[in-house]
Simulated scan of single mutants.
Amino acid sequence: MAFVVKRVHEEPSPEDGFRVLVDRLWPRGVSKQRARVDLWLKDVAPSTDLRNWFHAEPGRFDEFAERYEAELEDNPAVDELREIGAQHPVVTLLYGARAAHDRNHAAVLARFLLPPDRRRG
């Protein structure tokens, strides 16, 4: 199983495998037809409070990542996502932010889903 990260505004491709939107809010400017999302897993996204805290000052990404990982520790949606990963060779985690591929919550989530000995900051 592989979890990859892709912006939902990018063109879908067959290599995406099973496509999961991991945002709490539907991304602006993207129709459901164009997004080709297989599952919208809102509950795995950062809490509204954490998202608002981070958007107020995006320079706090490292602390955001730590806080988000703490939220993920007790989040049952993570188990659902791991089950999906066990059923599909590729799972693409879709996000709507304009942030770089490695500086957004979907990238933090993808790292969190790795076995602990394979995670890197």
Rank of each mutant, 00 (worst) to 15 (best):
A106V: 00
E73F: 04
K42V: 07
F112E: 03
V91Y: 00
A99V: 03
W40H: 12
A45C: 06
E83K: 15
E15S: 14
H105F: 05
D62E: 15
N104W: 03
L41A: 03
W53D: 13
R36G: 02
H88M: 11
R60T: 10
W40F: 04
N75R: 08
R28I: 01
R24F: 05
Y95P: 02
P14E: 15
E71I: 01
V30N: 06
A107I: 07
E63T: 08
V20Y: 04
P89H: 14
P115K: 12
R120F: 14
V30F: 01
N75V: 09
K32Y: 15
L41R: 03
Q87L: 11
H105I: 04
D16E: 03
S31E: 15
R103C: 09
A77F: 13
L114A: 13
F18E: 02
A110H: 05
V4M: 10
K6Y: 07
E73A: 10
L21D: 00
V22T: 01
D117E: 15
A97H: 02
D62R: 11
R19L: 05
V4Y: 00
W53F: 09
R118I: 06
R111K: 11
R7P: 07
V91M: 03
H101P: 14
H9R: 13
V5K: 08
R34V: 05
V91E: 01
V90F: 07
L113V: 13
P76D: 04
A100L: 12
L50T: 07
H9S: 14
T92K: 00
E83G: 10
K32M: 13
P14G: 11
A2K: 15
P115A: 11
L81G: 04
A97V: 04
R111T: 12
V91I: 02
R111G: 12
L81N: 05
V20P: 02
R60L: 13
R19E: 14
R36M: 13
E66I: 01
W40V: 00
E66T: 05
N104T: 02
G59I: 08
D102N: 14
R28L: 07
R98W: 00
H88Y: 13
H105P: 04
G17N: 03
